[in-house]
Design a protein around this nucleic acid. Structure first.
Length: 814
DNA sequence: TTGCGATCCCTTTTT
DNA sequence: GGGATCGCAA
C-alpha cells in the first residue's frame, strides 16, 4: 500500500505520482466508468484519490457512496480518504463508505415498514438458517436425508440471488426435487417473516425489491447518493447488480438540453481474473456487460503492477493463461529483479508446515517483520497443522477468523438472549436459550407451547406470556415458563426499555444478560466441576463480550444510525420515529455482530504472521507468503474438478494467492495428507505444473518415501490409477475402516502391533505399559500409564506409539 | 427432564 | 478427527 497519499485537497497534488491511466481514472468526473484493475495495480489508491478529487471539484461528500464487500475494506477506504482530506469535517461529512450488506441492513431498518419488516428484525447467520431449515423440513414431513438442510439452503440461496422469490421459484419448478424445494422455500420464508428475521441473502434481495418496487424510496435514495463507486465489482451477484443499478438510476437530462441524457455517475472497479465468488452467485458478466448497460461508459485499464517482483508476476501470468474463458491482459512488472519462487514437495502435512515456518523464519532473520508475512490455504481445516508448527517455534500468529468468537457456544447463548430482548418473535434464538441454562422447560412443555402458538397463529413468546391458558401444562411447567418471561421482561423493562432497572448503557445490558440469565453461574459451576481450561475460558469470553459491547457503545453515533432516528439522513425532520435509545443501540450492535467477516480480523498492527484462506486474502498484500496444500482435490478442490468453469475459478483463486506476495513466495504440497484421520496419498496440483519452470526453484523434499513399498502394494492390489489412493501410514494409529480391501488385515495387524507388556506413548497420558488388548471391530487396549494410571483406549483413535523397538515410524528430525 | 455415551455423518470457499 | 444427534438410564 502506498503511504504517500497527499494530505491536501489541492487537485494537482491529488494527481501527483500517478501513471497516466491512474490519473485518467481519478480525473473522471461524470458519467459511468469501468476500471479494469489488474492485481497490484494501485486500485485502492485510485479509488481513494478519485473520491478526494470529486470532493475537491465541489461534489458534496454526502452525495458519494462507496461500496465494498468487507467491513475491513470499507474501513480502510474511509480511513485513507479521511487522511487525504485531512479529516476536514466539511469535506468528509456524510460520505458513505460501507459494505453492500451493511448498506442494505440500514436501508431495511430505515424503510422497514415498506419492506414488510419490523425495524427490530434479526439477521440470521448460517447456523440459525440451518436450524430454521431443519425445523421447516421436519414440519413438512419431508425426509431430511433426501433433502439435506444445507443443500436445500444453498439451492434457495441461488434462487434468492437471482431475485426469484418462493412463488416465482415454484412457477419455474418442474421435477420432483424442485417442486419439493419450492414448497420448503415457501414455508421457510414464512417462518423467517414470522420470526421477524432475514437471512444474509434477504438483506440484498429485500433491498433490491424495495428499490425496484417503491418509487418513493428509490427517489429518496437516488437523490441522497448521486455518485456511486463499487470495489471488487467482479464479485457482485445479480441482486447486488440490481441494487447498484437502482441506486445509480437511469441518468438525468442535461439542464437546458432536452433529450440529452447524462448517464449515471457510477464507477466500478474490478478484475475478472480475481473473480472467486461465482459459487456464491457472483456473475462475471456483470463486469463484462457493464459497457452494454452503460453505452457511454469510459473504460480504463490499469495494467502496471507495483506490488510484486518480476518472477512472482511471471508465474502468476503463466498460470492464469491456462484459463480459456478469459480475455488476456498483460501483467506489467514494475519491480525488476527478485528471487525465484520456491516450490517444495513435502512428505506430509507436518513436514510441510515445518518447512513453511522455516521459510518465514528465514525471512524474519533477513529482517522482515512477522506482520509482513502470511500463510494461505484453501480450506480452514488446514490451519491447524500450520498453527501447531508456529506455536512450537513460538512465532506469533493470528488466524483471520473474524466470526470464530461469535460462533462459540457461550457467546451464541448470550447473543441469543440479546436477540430475544430486541426481537421476541425470534424463534430460533428463543429456542436456543429458553432452557439454557436448564430451567425445567423441556421438550414436552415446548411442544405444547408451540402447538398452541401455531393454533393461535402467534409467536412462541406471546404464548409463554399467557401459558396458563395452554391446555395440558403442569403447574411446574407454567411456573418455570412464567419465571422465564419475567426474566426477559425484567431485561426489557417490559418492552419499554425504561424503568428503574434499565440504564442507558449497552454494556450494562449485556452484563445483566450474562448474570441474570444464569449463564455466568452455569459456566462457573461447569468450570469448577470439570476444572477444564476451556470452561474457564468461557467465562473470559463472556467478559470479553461485555467489553466488546462497551467498545461499541463508545464509538456509537446515534445521529448517524438510521435505526435510531429513521429518516434523519434521508427524510425531512419531524418524521422521526420514537425508538428507545438503548434499543436502537442494541439493534445496531447485533447488526454489527451479524455482519462480521473473517477478513475483518486481519490487523497487521498485531505484529504476527497471518493465517487465512485464499478467499480471505483477496485485496491484501504481504512481503512474504507461503501457500500450502497445492494438491489435486484441495486446490483445485475436489468439488470443483467436474466442471471446467469451477476449475477456472480454482485457478483464479490460486492466482489471487500468488499475486498477494510482494517479494517472497513459497508454494508447497505434501505427498501424504491426513484427511479425517486417514493418511491419504495425494497428487501434486496441476497448478504447480502450470507455473512454468523459468522462475521456479522446485525441490522434492519427500525423497524416496519410506512407505513407498506399501503404497505400491496397495496400488497394485485393487486401486489402480485412482487419483487419490488411501493408504495407511504405519504406526499412525489408524486403520482404514473398511474402505479399502486391506482393512481387516490391517485391523488384525494393529492388535499385533501392541503385544501385552510393550511400552507405548500416548500424546496426552504419556508413557505406559500395555496390559491387554481386546479384539473385535473396535480393538481396545488396556494401558497402565506411569502418570495417570489405567486407561482403556480404542486403538484406532488413540495415536499410541510404541517405544520399545526400533521404530521406523518415528519422525526423523528435520 | 437431564445428561451421558454411542453412533452416524460429514468434509470449500463467505457476507 | 470431530461435531451433531439420537437413544437410553437415572
Amino acid at each position: 500500500m502506498d503511504t504517500e497519499d497527499p494530505r491536501i485537497d489541492d487537485a494537482n497534488a491529488l494527481l501527483e505520482g500517478l501513471t497516466p491511466s491512474q490519473r485518467k481514472a481519478v480525473e473522471h468526473l461524470d458519467g459511468p466508468l469501468l476500471v479494469l484493475a489488474a492485481a497490484g495495480s494501485g486500485k485502492t489508491r485510485v479509488i481513494t484519490r478519485r473520491i478526494a478529487y470529486l470532493v475537491s471539484q465541489g461534489v458534496p461528500p454526502w452525495n458519494i457512496l462507496a461500496l465494498t464487500f468487507t467491513n475491513k475494506a470499507a474501513g480502510e477506504m474511509r480511513e485513507r480518504i479521511h487522511l487525504i482530506l485531512e479529516n476536514d469535517e466539511r469535506k468528509t461529512r456524510g460520505l458513505t463508505t460501507t459494505t453492500f450488506h451493511a448498506l442494505c441492513a440500514r436501508l431495511l431498518r430505515r424503510y422497514a415498514d415498506r419492506a414488510g419488516l419490523k425495524p427490530d428484525y434479526t439477521i440470521y447467520d448460517a447456523s440459525d438458517q440451518a436450524s430454521l431449515m431443519k425445523r421447516t423440513i421436519s414440519e413438512l414431513n419431508i425426509s431430511s436425508s433426501n433433502f439435506p438442510p444445507r443443500s436445500v439452503l444453498s439451492t434457495i440461496s441461488t434462487a434468492k440471488n437471482d431475485l426469484l422469490d418462493a412463488a416465482e421459484y415454484a412457477r419455474s419448478a418442474g421435477d420432483f426435487y424442485t417442486t419439493r424445494v419450492a414448497k420448503i422455500y415457501e414455508e421457510y420464508e414464512q417462518k423467517l417473516r414470522a420470526a421477524n428475521a432475514v437471512d444474509f441473502d434477504d438483506l440484498l434481495v429485500l433491498t433490491a425489491k424495495l428499490l425496484r418496487d417503491d418509487a418513493q424510496v428509490r427517489a429518496q435514495v437516488q437523490s441522497r447518493w448521486s455518485y456511486l463507486l463499487i470495489d471488487e465489482y467482479q464479485d457482485t451477484n445479480h441482486a447486488q447488480f440490481m441494487i447498484a443499478s437502482l441506486i445509480a438510476g437511469e441518468g438525468r437530462e442535461l439542464p437546458g438540453m432536452p433529450g440529452e441524457i447524462l448517464e449515471p455517475n457510477v464507477c466500478v472497479v474490478g478484475d475478472p481474473d480475481q473473480s472467486i465468488y461465482a459459487w456464491r452467485g457472483a456473475d462475471i458478466s456483470n463486469i463484462l456487460e457493464f459497457e452494454e448497460r452503460y453505452p457511454g461508459a469510459a473504460v480504463i485499464t490499469l495494467g502496471e503492477n507495483f506490488r510484486s517482483t518480476a518472477p512472482i508476476l511471471s508465474i502468476a501470468d503463466t498460470l492464469i493463461r491456462n484459463n480459456k474463458k478469459r480475455k488476456h491482459k498483460d501483467l506489467i512488472a514494475h519491480r525488476e529483479g527478485g528471487e525465484n519462487v520456491v516450490v517444495e514437495i513435502c512428505r506430509d502435512e507436518h513436514h510441510e508446515a515445518t518447512l513453511a515456518v522455516d521459510f518465514l523464519e528465514k525471512k524474519s532473520q533477513e529482517g522482515l517483520h512477522w506482520r509482513d508475512m502470511a500463510i494461505f490455504y484453501r480450506t480452514n481445516a488446514l490451519s491447524r497443522v500450520t498453527e501447531d508448527a508456529l506455536r512450537q517455534r513460538g512465532i506469533p500468529y493470528v488466524i483471520a477468523r473474524g466470526t470464530a468468537f461469535y460462533e462459540r457456544e457461550e457467546i451464541k447463548n448470550a447473543i441469543g438472549y440479546l436477540r430475544v430482548v430486541a426481537n421476541q418473535a425470534d424463534g430460533v434464538s428463543l429456542g436456543r436459550i429458553v432452557n439454557t441454562p436448564t430451567r425445567a422447560i423441556g421438550k414436552t412443555t415446548l411442544n405444547r407451547l408451540s402447538e398452541f402458538a401455531t393454533y393461535e397463529n402467534v409467536c412462541l413468546f406471546d404464548v409463554m406470556r399467557r401459558c396458563i391458558e395452554v391446555p395440558g401444562l403442569q403447574a411446574r411447567a407454567t411456573t418455570a415458563v412464567g419465571r422465564f418471561v419475567e426474566l426477559i421482561d425484567d431485561l426489557t423493562g417490559s418492552g419499554s426499555f425504561m424503568g428503574s432497572k434499565i440504564t442507558e448503557s449497552l454494556a450494562d445490558l449485556v452484563e445483566r444478560v450474562v448474570r441474570e440469565s444464569g449463564l455466568e453461574k452455569m459456566y462457573t459451576d461447569q468450570a469448577r466441576t470439570t476444572k477444564s481450561e476451556s470452561d474457564e475460558q468461557r467465562i473470559d469470553n463472556l467478559n470479553e463480550l461485555v467489553s466488546s459491547a462497551a467498545d461499541f457503545e463508545e464509538n456509537y453515533q446515534p445521529e448517524s444510525d438510521p435505526a435510531a432516528f429513521p429518516g434523519a439522513d434521508v427524510l425531512e425532520r419531524g418524521e422521526r420515529a420514537e425508538v428507545p435509545p438503548l434499543l436502537a443501540m442494541l439493534r445496531a450492535y447485533l447488526e454489527s455482530i451479524a455482519l462480521v467477516a473473517d477478513s475483518d480480523k486481519i490487523d497487521p498492527a498485531q505484529g504476527a504472521v497471518t493465517l487465512m484462506t485464499l478467499h480471505a486474502s483477496k485485496g491484501l498484500e504481504f512481503g512474504a507468503v507461503a501457500m500450502v496444500g497445492l494438491e489435486e482435490g484441495l486446490l483445485p478442490h475436489s468439488r470443483a474438478l467436474s466442471s471446467e468453469d469451477d476449475l477456472e475459478e480454482e485457478r483464479r483463486l490460486c492466482f489471487v494467492g500468488i499475486t498477494r506476495a510482494m517479494s517472497h513466495l513459497r508454494i508447497s504440497c505434501a505427498r501424504h495428507r491426513a484427511v479425517r484421520g486417514f493418511a491419504e496419498r495425494t497428487m501434486p496440483s496441476r497448478f504447480l505444473e502450470e507455473l512454468g519452470r523459468e522462475h521456479v526453484t522446485m525441490t522434492d523434499l519427500a525423497g524416496s518415501t519410506w512407505d513407498e513399498g506399501l503404497d505400491q502394494r496397495i496400488e497394485d492390489a485393487d486401486l489402480g490409477d485412482a487419483p487419490i489412493v488411501r493408504s495407511r501410514m504405519p504406526g499412525a494409529g489408524s486403520s482404514g475402516s473398511g474402505s479399502s480391501g486391506a482393512s481387516s488385515g490391517a485391523r488384525a495387524g494393529i492388535q499385533r502391533e501392541y503385544p501385552p507388556g510393550c511400552t507405548v506413548r500416548h500424546p496426552q497420558f504419556g508413557i505406559g505399559t500395555v496390559i491387554a488388548v481386546m479384539g473385535g471391530s473396535m480393538a481396545r487396549a488396556k494401558v497402565k500409564f506411569r502418570q495417570v494410571g489405567e486407561k482403556t483406549l480404542i486403538l484406532e483413535h488413540a495415536r499410541l506409539r510404541r517405544l520399545d523397538h526400533a521404530d521406523s515410524t518415528e519422525d526423523p528430525p528435520f
